[in-house]
Design a protein around this nucleic acid. Structure first.
Lengths: 331, 331
DNA sequence: TTACGATAAGTTATCGTTAACATACTCTCC
DNA sequence: GGAGAGTATGTTAACGATAACTTATCGTAA
C-alpha cells in the first residue's frame, strides 16, 4: 500500500520511506501493472479510434484532431485499423473493449455485424461516437460533414458552368455518406429540371474488390471508362471522393481527352493531392479537423458525463473549392 | 468457472448447461472483462506501434504491413501517435505498457528520454523492435532501409548526369537515418573527387518548429530559398525525403526556374505523390511494406519466443526510381 | 489536560478472471 | 466388478493493484 502511495504520488508518505521505496523500485525494476490498476479503478483514461482507410489523408487528419483534443484532457488514444468490412470492424471493437477503453470513436463504414456489436457495447455502457457512419442508436452520437449539401453544391457548380450531362462516379448504395452525396447530386439536377439519367450514375464495377475502402481510385478509373464508352458521354463528372476523381482523371487523359475542356470534374474531400493535380482538382472540402475535434469532445462528455445523454447529431458545413478541373463557363 | 468455460469455449461443458449460460449471458448483457482475463493470463495478444508522422504515407504503409502480419498470427494492433518528440514518445510507450501489450514496434525518431524509457521497458521483458530508430540496445531488434546506400545512389545519379554543384536539403544532425543519407551523399561526392561545400548542405532553418516531423515540406522550401540566394547556386539537389523535395520544387518554381533544366532534384521515400508531381519526382524508394512485415515478424518471434534472442539488424535495399525531375545528362 | 487534526503506515476486501486441483458421475473393457 | 478414461462441474488461490478503513504518533489549540 505504501508503495502504491509512492508510485501514484498521493496520500501521506514520509520523505524517508518514499526514498526507500523509489530505491527499491529502481533496483527491482518494478513497474506498476496497469491492468490490475485499471481493473480495480474501473477506467483506463484511454479512448479507441477505429479507422477504415488509414492511407487516406482524411482519416489521418481526423486522427490527429481527435488525439489533440483527447490529450488536452489527459486521455490516450489507441488507433485500430479496420480495412475491409464487418469482420475486421468486430475484431477492432472487440480488442478495444477487451482493453476496457473508456470510449470508442468509429469512423468506418456501416455494416450489419459491426453495428450490432457496437450496439451491444453501448448497452454495456461503453460510450460511442460515430463519424460519418450511418448508425442510428439512441446513445450513439453522430458527427458528419453535410454530404447532402456538399453533393448539391458540387453539382450546382457544374450546372452553373453550363453542363447538362453530368455523371456521378462511385455510387455505392451501402455507404450512407455516399448515398447522401448522390442524393445531393440528384436534388441539384432536379432543381434545374435536368433529367436524371441512370446510365450516368456508375457504381462499383463487378470486378473490383467490394469491401476494400482504399481502392477507390480504381473505381474512378473503371467508372470513367464506362462513361466514356457511352454513345452520349457526359461533359462533366462529380466523383464521390478525390481518389475516385483522380482515377477518373487518369481515364480521361488516357482516352486523349482534356480536362476541363472536354470533361469537367469535381471531387470530394480536398485531400492535399487535390491541389497538386494537374489540372488542380475542384472539390468539396470536408472539415476533417472539426469533425475529429467535435467527436472527441462529445465522447469526453459522455465519459466524464453526468447521466445518460441521448443521441446528438452534428452535421458540419463543407466548402466548395473551385480549381482548374471544373473549368470556365460553357456556351 | 463454468461460465468461463462456456465463454472461452474450452473444457467440458454439457450442451444443456452451455445453453443456459449463453441465455444468461444474453439476458444480463454480460461481457467478459478483458483486463481481469489478461491480468490472470499474463498476455494480451496485442502489439503496439508508435508512429511519428501519421500523415506520411510512409508511416501508413508501414502500419498496414505490420498489421497484416500480426493479424495472421491472431494478434491485434494498437497504433499510438507521437508527433513531437520525447514527451509524446514517453506518453505513448507508457500507455502501451500500461495496457500490457505483448510487444512494441517503434518508428519514431530517437530521443533521449524516449530511448531511456524503452530501455527500461525492455529490461522488464517487454519485446521491442525499432524501425529506422537509431537505438542500440542488446535486446532491441532493428529494421531500417539502407539510407547510406540510398543517399549514395541518389547523389551518384546526379553526378552521372553531369552535375558538380549538388546540394543536400534537410540535414538534421539528430536524426540517425537522415545522417546516413547525408553520409551517402558525402561519400558519393568524395568518390568522384567533388569537393564537399558546406554551404550546399542546409539544415533546419531556425524559424521552423524543431520537433515536428511533418512540416518537412516547409524545411525544403526554406532550404531551397537559401540555396538559391547563394552567389553560386547548385545545379542539382538531393532532398532528405519527398516532402522536403516537394517544398524545394515549390521554391524553385516560385523563383521562376525550371526543373530539371535549371535545377535537377531527387527525393527519398517514393510516396504516392512523387509520381504525380509535375515534373514527376526522381526518388529513392523505401521498401515500406517489407520493413513493416519484417519488424512484425521479429517482434512475434520475440513474443512467442524461446529464450532471449539477442539484437538482430536488418538493413533493406532501396531502389532509385528515375523520373523527370532529375532530367537528362548535361554537357 | 484533553481533544482534534494532520501525518504515517498497515490491514482487509475487492476488481473479474482462470490455472490447477478436487470431486463426482458415466461408460467401456478386460 | 474394478480399473481407467472421458465427461461435467465445483473450489481455491492467485494475477497486482487500490479504496476504505484502522491504528498510531505527533503537534497544537482550547
Amino acid at each position: 500500500m505504501t508503495v502504491s502511495r509512492v508510485v501514484s504520488g498521493d496520500g501521506y508518505v514520509s520523505e524517508e520511506t518514499r526514498e526507500k521505496v523509489l530505491k527499491a523500485v529502481k533496483e527491482l525494476n518494478y513497474r506498476r501493472n496497469g491492468l490490475a490498476r485499471s481493473l480495480k479503478r474501473q477506467f483506463t483514461e484511454t479512448v479507441g479510434l477505429v479507422l477504415g482507410d488509414i492511407s487516406n489523408p482524411y482519416s489521418t487528419e481526423l486522427a490527429r484532431a481527435v488525439r489533440e483534443t483527447l490529450l488536452e484532457q489527459g486521455f490516450n488514444l489507441f488507433i485500430c485499423i479496420s480495412e475491409s468490412g464487418a469482420k475486421e470492424d468486430v475484431i477492432a471493437f472487440e480488442s478495444l473493449a477487451n482493453h476496457s477503453v473508456d470510449g470508442i470513436i468509429v469512423a468506418t463504414r456501416s455494416n450489419e455485424a459491426g453495428d450490432r456489436y457496437l450496439s451491444d457495447l453501448v448497452d454495456t455502457n461503453v460510450p460511442v461516437v460515430a463519424i460519418g457512419r450511418d448508425l442510428t442508436h439512441k446513445n450513439i452520437d453522430f458527427v458528419s460533414p453535410d454530404n447532402l449539401k456538399g453533393g448539391f453544391d458540387a453539382t450546382q457548380h457544374l450546372i452553373d458552368l453550363g453542363h447538362k450531362r453530368i455523371a456521378f462516379i462511385g455510387a455505392n448504395l451501402r455507404s450512407g455518406s455516399n448515398l447522401k452525396r448522390l442524393q445531393g447530386y440528384i436534388d441539384a439536377l432536379e432543381q434545374h429540371d435536368i433529367p436524371v439519367d441512370e446510365r450516368l450514375i456508375t457504381g462499383r464495377s463487378e470486378g473490383i474488390a467490394d469491401e476494400v475502402g482504399y481502392s477507390t481510385e480504381e473505381i474512378g478509373f473503371e467508372g470513367m471508362k464506362r462513361l466514356l464508352s457511352l454513345p452520349d458521354p457526359p461533359t462533366a463528372v462529380f466523383a464521390r471522393n478525390d481518389f475516385t476523381a483522380i482515377g477518373a482523371m487518369r481515364a480521361i487523359s488516357e482516352a486523349g481527352l482534356k480536362i476541363p475542356n472536354d470533361i469537367a470534374i469535381v471531387g470530394f474531400d480536398d485531400i492535399p493531392l487535390a491541389a497538386r493535380m494537374s489540372p488542380s482538382l475542384t472539390t468539396v472540402r470536408q472539415p476533417m479537423r472539426a469533425e475529429g475535434q467535435i467527436a472527441a469532445e462529445m465522447l469526453l462528455e459522455r465519459i466524464t458525463g453526468k447521466a445518460n445523454i441521448s443521441r446528438r447529431e452534428r452535421i458540419l458545413d463543407c466548402e466548395l473549392i473551385v480549381r482548374e478541373s471544373s473549368g470556365h463557363r460553357r456556351q
